[in-house]
Design a protein around this nucleic acid. Structure first.
Lengths: 228, 228
DNA sequence: ACCTGAACACCGTTCAAGT
DNA sequence: ACCTGAACACCGTTCAAGT
């Protein structure tokens, strides 16, 4: 992984890449609250202040960590698949990345307009274009896809953070939520009560992709209407 | 606004409602970082520790503040409009609430499964049901709508937080982002570059509703396919 | 140029002590 | 039952001082 020492005295000088890599490790272990400058400095055997020579501030660090994950997630090989399936593939890979690194959801929300967000926008936008969506609607269509994806990511992040806080696992947490919903007022919350039962056993990834398909169908329905 | 003192000695005893109301005010003024127990205690002329008699912790407080806004946003009068337009109305009201209180976006993400989230789910779910979506798809359809809405809200929140930090206004910030995107590598980011020009003048609310319409069209397209 | 580590100005939360 | 306010265990960030 790390390139061999180049013969210099210090094989492990501090660098932005090393800091970001360790930040990702810290985030994976403890979520967003797990990333602190002190813990990071400890792991890198340096002082907290030293980090500021390589990074601007915590936001910069979080976005850089996020970008490291996102960059590899959207880096899909060129393919001859239809734009629809390519969008599905990209979305699936993003879901998996957000699932493996639950802090990504929250980080991505804070990263609006920055590199990781642009990477996602770009890879989706190219396929939206290929889909034949007229120029004028390309932005709103792409950003709808993107908002949906980050929305799901954010909820994922919140859920796993909550589970961590209580020391629960995912299914225990969902069971808990399901029971709360089932006990809600029948007059005011009929839908939540009805849906509560299915909560603990539902498949997050399948539901996520069902949402993507809904949007894709909406896009193609709009196109047909236009063509007439 | 405040009801007249009821004749009791202490007209302003601490209460959960008063704390939450002041928390909303603090959040509106300074965003999420503006809400601290010390500032809140100051404004309520009490000690920070006193607040813990009425609220569990900061998360509890943030969710309660969020719920105060969401409850009034989803409280739409009964109407004979089509489910589609009712969904559009609910979404629009949520957008306006998230626009007026930009911290809502972030709070809502942290509020997964709790009351404010259930309120939104319920009001959307009832209309999804009215739309004739089959039982099995009602959950994934409703949560897709919900994820999209919270996703947009989160981005809104991030943008306004960033603008506040830099002391910029919204349009200044978008211009800045637009310039960054326009300067990206032409090979790697053609879509972002193309879309950059339109960024500063786009209408957030219209784009948001366009996304809602996309999902609604996807729903009705799925229904037609089913009916055949 | 790069790193050290103490210091600063904050946080959320607890808890003995009061009324 | 409810409130006080000091104390605790943290934060991110800065900056003089070192190499």
């Amino acid at each position: 992984m790390s390139k061999p020492p180049s013969g210099r005295r210090k094989e492990s000088a501090l660098s932005r890449e090393r800091i970001v890599a360790e930040a990702v490790a810290l985030l994976d272990e403890g979520g967003e609250p797990g990333l602190t400058f002190r813990a990071l400095a400890d792991r890198l055997a340096t002082g907290a202040g030293a980090l500021y020579w390589h990074i601007d501030d915590k936001r910069d660090l979080l976005i850089a960590a996020c970008d490291a994950i996102i960059a590899s997630a959207v880096d899909t090989p060129a393919s001859k698949a239809t734009p629809e399936t390519r969008i599905r593939t990209i979305a699936g890979r993003l879901f998996d990345a957000m699932d493996a690194h639950p802090w990504i959801g929250g980080a991505l929300t804070q990263a609006g307009g920055t590199l990781p967000a642009v990477r996602i926008l770009e890879s989706l936008g190219q396929q939206v274009q290929a889909l034949g969506v007229p120029q004028k609607q390309q932005w709103s269509t792409t950003s709808a896809l993107m908002s949906y994806i980050t929305g799901v990511g954010g909820e994922n992040a919140a859920r796993s953070q909550l589970a961590r806080r209580h020391g629960f696992d995912r299914s225990r947490l969902l069971t808990e939520v399901s029971q709360t919903w089932a006990a809600l007022d029948a007059q005011a919350f009929p839908f939540a009560r009805q849906v509560a039962a299915r909560l603990p056993t539902h498949d997050d990834r399948a539901d996520f992709l069902a949402g993507i398909d809904l949007i894709l169908r909406g896009i193609s329905a709009s196109a047909q209407r236009h063509r007439r």
